[in-house]
Design a protein around this nucleic acid. Sequence first.
RNA 1: UGGGGUGUCGCCAAGCGGUAAGGCACAAGGUUUUGAUCCUUGCAUGCGCAGGUUCGAAUCCUGCCACCCCAGCCA
Length: 557
Amino acid sequence: MSEEIEKYPANFIRNIIEQDLREGKNGGNVVTRFPPEPSGYLHIGHAKAICISFGIAGEFNGSTYLRFDDTNPQKESIEFMESIKKDIDWLGFEWLEIRNASDYFEQLYQFAEKFIEMGKAYVDSCSADEIRKLRGNLTSPGENSPYRDRSIEENLDLFRRMRAGEFADGDHILRLKIDMASPNINMRDPAIYRIRHMHHFKTGNEWCIYPLYDYTHCISDSLEGITHSLCDLSFEDHRPLYDWILDELRLNCHPQQIEFSRLNLQFTVMAKRKLKVLVEENLVDGWDDPRLPTIAGLRRKGYTPGSIREFCRRIGVTKSDNNVELGMLESCIRDDLGDSAPRVMGVLNPLKIVLENYPEGQMESIEVPNHPKDESMGTRKIQFSREIYIDQADFRETANRKYKRLVIGGEVRLRYGYVIKANEVIKDDAGNIIELRCSYDPDTLGKNPEGRKVKGVIHWVSVDDGVPAEIRLYEPLFTVDFPDASEKDYHELINPNSMTVLKGFVESSLKEASIDQRFQFEREGYFCVDRKDSSTEALVFNRVVGLRDTWAKIEKS
RNA sequence: UGGGGUGUCGCCAAGCGGUAAGGCACAAGGUUUUGAUCCUUGCAUGCGCAGGUUCGAAUCCUGCCACCCCAGCCA
């Protein structure tokens, strides 16, 4: 798929790689990797990282490994691993190979013994608490551990016994011997192995010691022959350690780590921990809830892979902090669906209309185009009848002349149908409008009426032919643009109206709509058949995004 | 008050010493049986601030200021 991937605009990482290629570095190869930890579902921020690592490699005819960073059995699972594979595939990217960091456990272990033999690693028997105290803090240096000068023999013996399972979790830890006074805290004798008597979803009970990220990641990169290791800015001050380990090991492949800023999207949260809580507390309907910024959620809501890729292309790649507006994402899916989604009619908030001069029992079939500017999308038949539904918002008892829809005594065009005129409002005892009595002009099907202009066009569905459908509208999950910046707990910032469920009607051509199909409901927005809850017996549509609504803006002002 | 980063239009973002791309948003027109789409036009004498170098600076130098990240046996 790489040649279909949209080209990225100029960015600093591409510039670096282009220069490397010009200088003949890495034998002209570009090899990247995407290294998720299988401890949660991927979100739109990961999509950015995926588009960068897979996309840039693809642009230079390179390849990308999908590597699961499974070094912490406490948090990881097969379910997450499978969801990640599915999401990357759905986004349209192909990995060269799937690897797991756990594939390298034995090699990693051997390198650790080598570090011990070089006198560059030692077993520390301090408690976690003691280690924290000795680490110092941001402004003052750390102090050496009392175990720092154990002999190579003792270290080797202890480390082998750690592996053999002779000790309990937390009894010992293997540390690199670097510099406890380094201004970079990551260099203050970082831990590289901890004891965890725990089942690992991939290696089972083979290991009871597990390597840590900093140690595992750079070596894995090197073993795979990665040329450019792209990650987010939070790893910037881990780079000296990354380089230190590879330099000490004298491995022939020393990838270049390049960091970019991660995506911040307004009105949502991206932290894996926070997403997990939303799911586990059932505040949302699982990891694929359409209100979540997860790939699964966006997919279920109706986003296309192409729209997400386009979004990632538009937001660019830099090192600066960013707060991308929701409008940027929405614009991408509107662009995509505007071209590709067939048009249909659906009424969200039905108001029944009776056309008093239309013959009872008559049903008229009208052939209409599926797309206003793409004939290749063909036509379909819709049914017109004496009783129809229109949207409640398309009729008003009182309105100024800016309002182009139906008013008493006024005319409006029914999309692809006749011009009708409203004669009478029927209300219930509580004063709610429950029905409208109208008349239609028989001479207006497919042509404009003589001698007068009808400015408004509204959509409709035949009462006799339409089918009921559940329609779900979504608003942002949070009420504030920067939930992470708030001093309040994010639970308090959840939008109580993030989902609205409507009982509407859609034209009968949608009866056979299949999972995942997307349509434009004319004048309303783009809708997608819900993959979880929709069935032929009970249709459920998710609103992907509304149409641009200039009228709403006019009304506001 | 340690270290590492970042500051160009409301948001994203090109720019790499030769006189501020583009996208989103916004505004104004035109087309339109979707108040959609599409088209046209407008939108930073200004690049965090202050000095300096230069014929010329967003780009180089100096000094400030603001914001972000780091003290897991998480990744």
